[in-house]
Structure formats: structure tokens, C-alpha cells
């Protein structure tokens, strides 16, 4: 073989190698790297948020991610994402898994795969008392605040098409805008609203959480499309957590009496990856 052929063979080998890695099974890649990169929000208590004492990101989603890394015997790296960036980051391979208060719905199934449902919450509206709004339909024509890129805005539009929705980069900013009176209501998952409500302290008397659910939101971990091996490990880990009672412990750790939310019962089990809508 002359030099040119050597180069050619080298090039071919390189192409096969690069192409090969790109198309290999993601689980194998993760194991080889010895690290799983999990996308979290870090701004959504109690799913993932920064612990003011340790400055570390902790929460229910984070503990689930930890369990998966432990099962695989590899290092866990958390990557903080904006709500609107979650699915694009997963699709483009910048994170291996999403544990980011991600709603599982039929529409999104075209884009990503979902693990077993890890949490079920309703989406609700908290309003200022001085707005005199007592039910969701009364939000017609009123300014309602929420976060960009989640299911909150579409759900509100479905329930109250004439509401004027204003969206922000984080749920925190939207909630501050509500507190400042820049809108009459704020939409989010019920658990997040309860956590925000708890932080209001004495100002709680000026706000009311409307009883109706805008929607029921099954939350799940997000997996890139067409990675059955990774999905199996994730689902197996979740099933084991459920069976050992560990999942229930995690629920009460983040949502129970010691938390700001104070749920007394756990209204769901981690068992299915099917959703109704």
C-alpha cells in the first residue's frame, strides 16, 4: 500500500469510528464515560432547587437522578436548564436525561420518550385577593403570569382563551411579578405553588389558590427518543424504588410534613409510563 492508500484507510477508520460512536447505544456511551449528565431546573422547589445552606442543587428530581446513577455505578453530573431549553438540550445530546419537573403528555411523545410517571400534580392558579377572582373563568381578559416554554401557558389558554398571558424566563420571576401586582394570577404546578405560597409568610393573607385544576400533570423523566436500553435501566430503577418503599420515603421527604408543602398522603404510585392526554 502506498501512502495515499494508508491515508484513505485511516480516513475510513476515522469515519467509521466517529459515525460508530454517534450511533452506538446511549447507555453504553454513558457507562464508558463513567458519568451521566442529568438536566434539572434548579429553580423549582421541591423538585430541584438550590439549598441555601450548602449551595447545592437538591430535591425530589435530584434524588431520583442520584438513584439512577447509583444503579449504574457511575458519577452524576447535574446541569441546570431553563424550562424552555429542556427538550432541545436533550434532543441535541447535551444532557443524557431530564429530571426537570417535565410534564409527560401525548404531544411531547413525538419528541422524547418518558420514564414511568414519577409524580402527579395538578396545575393551578394563585391569585391576588384584591382582584376578587374566585374561579378560573373569571380570569378572562385579566393579566396572568407564568414561565416560558412549559405546559402552563398552553393549559391556561385552553381553559381561558381570552386571558392575557405574560411569560418570564423562570417561575421565580413570574411569581415576583405577581407579588408586585403586575398581574392578577400566576400559573404553575400545584406543588410549586404551595412551596411559593409557604415562602410568602405574613403576606399569605393577600393571596388565594383557586381550587380548580387547570390540568392534571403527570411528571416523568425525559429520555432521548429510541434509547430502549437506557429507558429500561431508568424504569427498572424506579420500579425498585417503588418496591422497596424508598420512593414513598422520597415523596414524604420532599412533599411531606417536614417540607413546605405538607402532603399527608401520596395519591399515586410509580408504576406506569402511559398518559391519557
Amino acid at each position: 500500500m502506498n501512502l495515499r492508500n494508508h491515508l484513505l484507510v485511516g480516513l475510513l477508520a476515522l469515519v467509521t469510528l466517529v459515525g460508530g460512536t454517534a450511533y452506538a447505544d446511549q447507555l453504553a456511551d454513558i457507562k464508558k464515560k463513567g458519568e451521566i449528565v442529568v438536566g434539572v431546573l434548579g429553580t423549582d422547589e421541591p423538585n430541584s432547587f438550590v439549598d441555601p445552606k450548602t449551595r447545592e442543587i437538591v430535591g425530589y428530581d435530584v434524588d431520583l437522578a442520584k438513584a439512577i446513577a447509583r444503579k449504574l455505578g457511575i458519577k452524576l453530573t447535574l446541569k441546570q436548564l431553563a424550562v424552555a431549553a429542556r427538550i432541545p438540550e436533550l434532543e441535541q445530546g447535551r444532557v443524557d436525561l431530564l429530571a426537570a419537573s417535565l410534564t409527560h403528555n401525548k404531544e411531547r411523545e413525538a419528541k422524547v420518550d418518558f420514564s414511568l410517571t414519577t409524580f402527579v400534580t395538578g396545575q393551578k392558579v394563585i391569585v391576588r385577593k384584591d382582584s376578587n377572582v374566585t374561579a378560573v373563568p373569571q380570569l378572562a381578559g385579566k393579566k396572568v403570569l407564568t414561565v416560558k416554554g412549559g405546559t402552563q401557558e398552553p393549559n391556561l389558554r385552553k381553559a381561558v382563551p381570552t386571558a392575557e398571558v405574560v411569560t418570564f424566563e423562570t417561575t421565580g420571576q413570574a411569581f415576583v411579578a405577581l407579588q408586585q401586582g403586575k398581574g392578577v394570577g400566576y400559573v404553575n404546578d400545584e406543588v410549586s405553588i404551595l412551596a411559593d405560597y409557604a415562602k410568602l409568610g405574613p403576606a399569605q393573607k393577600d393571596f388565594v389558590i383557586l381550587p380548580e385544576n387547570l390540568s392534571i400533570e403527570p411528571l416523568a423523566l425525559g429520555i432521548r427518543k429510541g434509547e430502549p436500553a437506557l429507558k429500561k435501566v431508568v424504569d427498572d430503577t424506579l420500579r425498585e424504588l417503588e418496591k422497596s418503599g424508598e420512593a414513598e420515603k422520597l415523596f414524604f421527604k420532599w412533599y411531606g410534613n417536614d417540607s413546605k408543602i405538607k402532603f399527608q398522603a401520596r395519591p399515586f404510585k410509580i408504576e406506569s409510563d402511559k398518559v391519557d392526554s
Binding site: 424552555a84 404531544e107 416554554g149 398552553p154
Partner: peptide, 9 residues
């Protein structure tokens, strides 16, 4: 544009 993105993908 971001609103269209999150509504339609």
C-alpha cells in the same frame, strides 16, 4: 417566536 416554538415544537 419562543411562544410559537413551545406551542408547535
Amino acid at each position: 417566536a419562543a411562544k410559537v416554538e413551545s406551542a408547535s415544537f
